[in-house]
Design a binder for these strands. Sequence first.
DNA 1: CTGAAAGCGCTTACAG
DNA 2: CTGAAAGCGCTTACAG
Lengths: 367, 367
Amino acid sequence: MKKDLKVGTSRIKFYFCRYMMKNMGKRKVTLQDIANAMHLTPSAVSKALNDHPRMSDDTKAAVKKMAKKLNYKPNQLAAALRSGRSKLIGVVVPAVDFSFFSSVIKGIEETVMEAGYRVLLAQSGNSEQKEQEVVETLLDARVDGLIVSIGSDIEDFSHLQRVKEQQIPLILFDRVLKDFGVSTVELDDFKGAYEAVTHLINQGCRRIAHLAGSPHLELYANRIAGYKAALSDAAIAVREDYILNSELLVEDGRNCMEKLLRLPIEERPDALFCASDFSAVGALQILRKNKICVPKEIKIVGFSNENFTLYLEPAISTVDQASIEMGHCAGKLILRQLRQESESFVPQRVVLEPTLIIRNSSKSDTD
Amino acid sequence: MKKDLKVGTSRIKFYFCRYMMKNMGKRKVTLQDIANAMHLTPSAVSKALNDHPRMSDDTKAAVKKMAKKLNYKPNQLAAALRSGRSKLIGVVVPAVDFSFFSSVIKGIEETVMEAGYRVLLAQSGNSEQKEQEVVETLLDARVDGLIVSIGSDIEDFSHLQRVKEQQIPLILFDRVLKDFGVSTVELDDFKGAYEAVTHLINQGCRRIAHLAGSPHLELYANRIAGYKAALSDAAIAVREDYILNSELLVEDGRNCMEKLLRLPIEERPDALFCASDFSAVGALQILRKNKICVPKEIKIVGFSNENFTLYLEPAISTVDQASIEMGHCAGKLILRQLRQESESFVPQRVVLEPTLIIRNSSKSDTD
DNA sequence: CTGAAAGCGCTTACAG
DNA sequence: CTGAAAGCGCTTACAG
């Protein structure tokens, strides 16, 4: 009832509003405005601004000048709707507060923004449901392409399958899917692990334990393989009880380290290769608690070059994952795919080189 | 030349493409499709899906059922263009790889996504030019509102002024602008500092130095004021040479600590209140290097509750900034403003309570 | 080289 | 309660 009584005034309000908007600079300048000002049609203006080939340079220059003068901002929504291209790229990562992911994002942005694309960022929090949701949301926003680093707990990939089926360009990085038929950017995890472990061997370590991730994930499997290969190449036997699988959180690092300390003292590892800097921190905490000196008694190498590894005492050696470059590659791959006809698409696989960063946590005293 | 020769085939290719798209599920289901299937008009379908008041519940239910059956996904771009509401909220922060900012973002997302909004995230990297650029980009994307934490180096606020003039809802958080006429969410920085310093005094410290931020920024000025007030209330004289201003990076922490160590030994501080956890880390590094024991000889309290403070040895006491809640508040404020008529807008100011987190870096041995 | 016209997929004020 | 119609601001194939 009350609503009905109000109709009269609210309509007045509405028109007042419209009037205000038109006269307070809120109404945006459109193509039509430029066209009117220059006695052209909107189509001509559109072509001029988009550097359409068959158009005189004089007209283009004049139109661009006028657009600037009127402070014209194209309505990307309208352009997107008409052209079917939103100029948005969705990026899904497990979390943004990891140095690795935030650097990759930076790399992606640098690359795609130059080509006029914007990034719609979403976090999956490593949850299957959340990842499905955010992919759905990004598709609803009509992104032109998707760059995803799959969460570690995710086993159902139907949401990515759907992206593929809809023929929306998809790039996977870091945590990728084997033989999924999409372009990927990965680190040479095998090599990163191999170099880290070889470094530890060179420092005189012989009983090297590995805080490993889930072997179901390609990248952790590769790190495990690199670890084993380095040992084998140095004629050191691989001990399965030195390989502890976990989710590699700080807490997991603590648990694993405690487990290792329960071994007979002569079998206690003299080095730790951790597949994540977070688990390395956890291990370090337990070692401190037990007054076991790093690097003197146990040396540590982590993985990912998280910023905080530099703040710890001792600073933790780690494997840098070429994060910015990974972002650049992912960006370039999606741009290429966005330009290509879909029938000529051939998935590419880029593998980047890791860089071992040696800090105090793994240096032998003799250095 | 070559292009001309190709025209014929590329046109064929084009039609082939269209054909493929229509037949491989790429073409999206539209309102029209639902309308056709039900012998209704698109307008009726639209109203049903948007729960328009004057429409029978039966029709609504039937339409929704059909929408689900056909896997209808509304084209947000079209809705945005027509309605003038993009359902996008732009969020600008200096950097995402700070625990504080990533938590605030999480809070914002939780709140606004429930109301059907998506977040377009951008980083300013604390650079004036970059911040102006990203705000521009977000406006070009036609965000309905903007949530910004101003970068610390920024002195020209014309980009924010422009947002205001365009009457686009704007919320500032953490680093806000005084008397700017927009809603803000801040921490009670004075109180956070006051409690931190009072805690240090209670631990027996008397010569408490402050690694301070730029006093031109409201929030750092408040922390300085809280520091001074706590000292005064404990009848401890404020020494200006104990207050060192910097940008509060790790490197600044190192420089400031070195400077303080150059004081005569009897004047050397017995505690440090750092306006940022990063500067606290830098100070800690220098203390370690000089074999000065924390907390025994010098106690430390940081600010922000960055994740890494927990990993350090000793773990660093810090002031938690209620980041998730700050995000929730910012989200709620912008939603409210989005619903309001602009003429009835009154800026709100929300001030949140900090929480002092006491860890080993500031505990006296007698504890 | 330029213009007229259609249309992307929605929403919404208006008429019934 | 439902329908017909206009239009958001662009882009683009077509005609000249």
